[in-house]
Nucleic acid binder design. Structure first.
Length: 696
DNA sequence: GAGCACTGC
């Protein structure tokens, strides 16, 4: 059985790890006990209420207020209301509050509308992609995804409608959060009256403080612009234990720990953080085997998986109460760290690892690797044990793994921001559309590495989105920045008019934006059946045309018939989303004055049109069945989810949407093309040389 | 021959 270090008996390590124990003082959970009170009384009972005056004073005096407080302390719901009550919404001004996720924006808005006593969409509204529920005349508090507010700057560069902008969950450092931070800081120079509130977790607060108190060139601002306000947490204490010795197999140790908790600790549900679906399924299997060996009288356990690709119905099972006298054990990916909150968790088992995607600009490949999670993550995970009562967190590593300020450790203090580890071409294009041509001067909180910047610019140039001086081309580049899809697909859509296939391409573009078109169950007979269903839609030409077939069949037969979707293993939710996306994209094309056209079943037009955007992603099949990229000569493999996994391209050549490197480099979403098309449609990128094509 | 962490416009 794993040996854990009991903290408090001896100092386990650096001063940093003390933060893990200061999750908050003992303040009873607000929601459970006081639901019989009026909404107003409930608001005044919230721990944050006693900070109301202080908060308002700070917003009055400082231009940036960094608010630190536990998730659930009422920051997101209360602060915009305080500002509204204090008059920040006078003179037609609006208080904006951004969220990194759609569900958060809508649920918080719904709650606040209720507290304000307004119909949702009236005084309190929200704006997320495909859903606008607010009134230009009456809405005073507007919740929105950070991506939506970023987009708004394309129409209103100074965001002049807003008196206060609150950026919630800023510590997560999503791409659009970072872009907004940079823009908002820029806007503040032109609008001294604008107030910005950043909501952050403890560890990251200083970084925001530093950022807002300095100029882009590194010099300090003349006055103190930013202040940190700490709100009292209402979390219960979480006791953190560490492994005495590192483990070579954290899945195995996690299972040992689960059984230790199950047999020795008082009642309470367990949340286990692992890194992926495969690991979770394997662990579930092992747990089931081990439960068989327990004596009949042993307490009962119900182990459940939780990851994003799990069908929604199966995800919802975790919220149900388990049978009597049964301990619920949830094995989750990082989805349970911020996106999904489960109440009643008393024990957290933290593997200390996370699967993270990073972009390699040298070969344009995304790499998905298991790495140690950050201390910030570890703290967030531990906090999940203290939401409804005091809890315990078992970290499957020794305290010596924790980072210290001076020594380099495997574990970073914070997770690298998304902008520093992604393909940034889309974001660069959008910044250019905002008139930010000199990206070196843009005040990124964490500037993307220069090789990523260079690659993105080269790529945008090859798509004819920017000219050789780095300026946005018109109308092409400007339109590409506006369409809400990645630059390659944007180029394809805009070229589809000329290639006479815009109707079909709208569908293909929409379908490539949704994940999990097919519901493929885990292994065995069911998976084989699902595979057979998918073959009914398979197009010889590859995945893009297969997606087109699926969409057309769905619109004809499945849209109002969930049974049909079930029978064909098609994800109804995903397809419905594709219908929305297609509608939205069509509106853009109409606005650009692009007339609709159809290729009338001529698949060659479609495949050629795809080459106009995907030309960079071309590969040739080798005799051994693997592929070589035209660009770098890298060895690539067909992802098993592709229809090309079981067939060979008649021409020997394919283009693909993306490569992701896991155990191998896998191409996803493939279409068979002719080699000549590359030179024909992307002459600036390829030319004939000797027997075959070469990249310029 | 065999597989994707999580968001967002």
């Amino acid at each position: 059985m794993p040996q854990f270090w009991k903290p408090g008996t001896a100092a386990p390590g650096s001063s940093l790890d003390r933060e893990t124990e200061s999750e908050g003082s003992i303040v009873p959970s607000a929601s459970a006990a006081i639901s019989h009170l009026s909404l107003e009384a409930q608001r005044q009972r919230l721990p944050i209420y006693k900070h109301r005056e202080k908060l308002l004073w700070c917003v009055e005096k400082y231009r940036t207020v960094i608010v630190v407080g536990q998730t659930g302390c009422g920051k997101s719901t209360q602060i915009p209301q305080y500002l509204h009550e204090a008059g920040w919404t006078n003179q037609n001004h609006v208080v904006a509050c951004t969220q990194p996720r759609r569900v958060a924006a809508t649920t918080v808005a719904t709650r606040v509308a209720e507290e304000v006593g307004s119909v949702l969409g009236d005084e309190v509204g929200y704006s997320i992609r495909f859903e606008d529920l607010w009134s230009p005349e009456r809405t005073k508090i507007k919740y929105m995804t950070d991506g939506m507010l970023f987009r708004e700057t394309m129409v209103d560069p100074l965001l002049s409608r807003y008196s206060v902008i609150m950026i919630d969950e800023a510590h997560e450092r999503g791409a659009y959060t970072d872009l907004l931070l940079g823009l908002v800081k820029k806007i503040m120079r032109k609008r001294p009256e604008l107030r910005v509130i950043i909501s952050s977790a403890t560890i990251e607060a200083e970084d925001f403080m530093e950022y807002f108190n300095s100029n882009a060139d590194g010099s300090d601002r003349s006055e103190d612009d930013a202040i940190i306000v700490s709100l009292e947490g209402r979390m219960f204490p979480v006791e953190v234990c560490y492994l005495r010795e590192p483990t070579a197999d954290y899945v195995h140790t996690a299972i040992d720990t689960i059984f230790d908790i199950h047999l020795k600790e008082p009642a309470g549900d367990v949340l286990v953080f692992l890194t992926g679906r495969e690991e979770i399924d394997q662990a579930l299997q092992n747990i089931a085997d081990r439960l068989q060996t327990l004596p009949k009288a042993a307490p009962k356990m119900l182990a459940l998986p939780l990851y994003a690709t799990l069908p929604v119905e199966e995800q919802e099972i975790i919220f149900e109460a388990p049978p009597r006298d049964t301990r619920k054990v949830i094995l989750a990916t990082n989805i349970a760290e911020a996106s999904v909150t489960i109440d009643g968790i008393k024990y957290v088992v933290d593997s200390g690892f996370v699967k993270i995607k990073t972009f390699n600009p040298r070969n344009s490949m995304d790499v998905l690797t298991v790495t140690p999670c950050s201390l910030a993550s570890a703290n967030q995970r531990a906090g999940r044990a203290g939401r409804t009562s005091a809890g315990k967190c078992f970290r499957l590593y020794p305290p010596s793994m924790l980072p210290t300020r001076n020594s380099g450790s495997q574990m970073p203090i914070t997770t690298p921001p998304e902008l520093t580890r992604s393909d940034i071409s889309l974001y660069i294009l959008q910044l250019k559309a905002l008139g930010i041509d000199n990206l070196a001067k843009f005040d990124f909180m964490s500037p993307p590495p220069s090789d990523m910047m260079i690659r993105a610019l080269e790529f945008l140039y090859s798509l004819n989105a920017i000219d050789d001086e780095g300026r946005l081309t018109r109308p092409m580049g400007a339109r590409m920045a506006e369409v809400p899809v990645d630059p390659m697909m944007a180029a394809i859509l805009l070229n589809s008019h000329e290639m006479k296939c815009s109707e079909e391409m709208l569908t293909i573009a929409a379908m490539t934006q949704v994940q999990n078109v097919f519901v493929i169950p885990e292994g065995g007979m069911k998976a084989t059946m699902a595979e057979l269903e998918r073959r009914k839609f398979t197009a010889e030409e590859g995945d893009h045309l297969t997606l087109l077939n699926v969409y057309n069949a769905f619109v004809r037969l499945g849209m109002r018939d969930k049974q049909w979707c079930g029978n064909h293993r098609i994800n109804h939710k995903a397809l419905s989303r594709a219908v929305s996306i297609r509608k939205q994209l069509k509106k853009y094309l109409e606005r650009f004055g692009i007339k609709s056209s159809s290729c009338e079943g001529d698949a060659k037009k479609l495949r050629r049109c795809l080459v106009t955007g995907y030309f960079k992603n071309a590969a040739r099949m080798m005799p051994d069945g693997t592929y070589r990229s035209a660009r770098e000569g890298a060895t690539l493999h067909v992802h098993p989810s592709s229809v090309m996994f079981t067939r060979q391209p008649s021409t020997g050549w394919v283009i693909f949407h993306e490569v992701i490197e896991t155990s191998k480099s896998f191409m996803r979403d493939l279409t068979v093309i002719e080699e000549e098309w590359l030179v024909d449609l992307a002459p600036h990128y390829y030319k004939f040389k000797g027997g075959g094509i070469k990249k310029h």
